[in-house]
């Protein structure tokens, strides 16, 4: 669906994107993670042919970009670095202008398609209010509507939930899941790890222009082979487990034990009271923080 190899972009002496490879497969919800300034937006712009790579190649739908932009881009819906619209027009008129540009938007179905996408993003009743009177969340929804206008097979969304409230974020997540079940591939760039964790099937992590991690979510979230035990009897637990207990504090012990059930049986047999016990899974945040360096917008002396 998306295949980038050796993708590099230099702006003068600044290397924004440095020799990255990406592979997004049909049906994926791909989370593209990275701190501010790590090169996410530049990569998205390159995928869409807005910024031309210094070197490397991009293939969308197995066609070379930006050469085949005219055939490929009508099948792609995108949100790049925030929504924008003609401010003095109504959302409906804006979408109608947007649809009139470029190939792939038949005029006879335009009204219906606009009504459909406005309904999908929850702006059906917005009427003729000009876009400049929209709230940030409404603009984000309108941007999303624009991306969905031609029922794209691939959605490339840069920070799609920016500016939305928790209900809005939930709605967008449900919408993306519904679209994905209907066959739409989603490429989602974000720095909201929780959002990606709930939504994505694969993630790629970008750090200062380089891909430091590209893995399926399932693999990342496999248990680490350790078990976290909550117990009021810390002392007895430590004595029983010896050096299998790798970390502990007042109420929890992290134990090197791949099978929580066996560990539980062992503890209970020894008369240790267990209040909670679960295999340890690293959160996406821990994984990403371990894989990346400090934030790029942090400037130390």
């Amino acid at each position: 669906m998306i295949a980038a190899t050796g993708l590099t972009k230099r702006f003068g002496s600044l290397c924004a994107v440095d020799d990255i490879d990406l592979a997004v497969h049909p049906g994926d919800i791909y989370g593209f993670l990275g701190a501010n300034g790590s090169g996410k937006t530049t990569t998205v712009r390159m995928l869409l042919g807005l910024v031309l790579p210094t070197s490397g190649s991009i293939r969308l739908f197995d066609e070379a970009m930006p050469k085949a932009a005219h055939q490929v881009l009508p099948r792609v819906g995108a949100l790049v670095e925030g929504p924008s619209a003609y401010r003095h027009l109504s959302g409906h008129t804006h979408l109608s202008l947007l649809d009139g540009m470029g190939p792939g938007g038949p005029r006879d179905s335009r009204r219906r398609r606009i009504a459909d996408v406005l309904d999908q993003v929850g702006l059906a009743g917005v009427g003729s209010r000009p876009v400049k009177a929209y709230s940030l969340g409404m603009r984000q929804r309108l941007g999303l509507a624009g991306a969905l206008l031609r029922s794209p097979e691939l959605l490339i969304l840069d920070e799609p939930t920016n500016g939305l409230d928790p209900q809005g974020i939930h709605e967008v997540r449900e919408l993306l899941l519904t679209l994905n079940r209907a066959g739409t591939t989603v490429f989602l760039s974000s720095h909201l790890l929780a959002e990606v964790e709930q939504l994505c099937t694969r993630v790629g992590v970008l750090d200062r222009g380089r891909v430091v991690l590209e893995e399926t979510m399932d693999t990342l979230r496999t248990p680490s082979g350790r078990t976290v035990v909550h117990t009021p009897d810390i002392g007895r637990t430590l004595a029983l487990l010896g050096d299998r207990a790798e970390q502990y504090d007042d109420v929890t012990v992290t134990v090197r034990a791949p099978d929580p059930a066996a560990l539980n049986a062992e503890l209970v047999q020894a008369g240790v009271r267990v209040s909670a016990l679960a295999p340890e899974r690293r959160s996406l945040e821990q994984i990403v923080l371990a894989a990346t360096g400090p934030s790029a917008d942090r400037v130390d002396a």
Binding site: G49, P74, L98
Partner: peptide
């Protein structure tokens, strides 16, 4: 940018 990715 939205014009150019329509694409125009």
């Amino acid at each position: 940018r939205y014009l150019l990715i329509r694409p125009v």
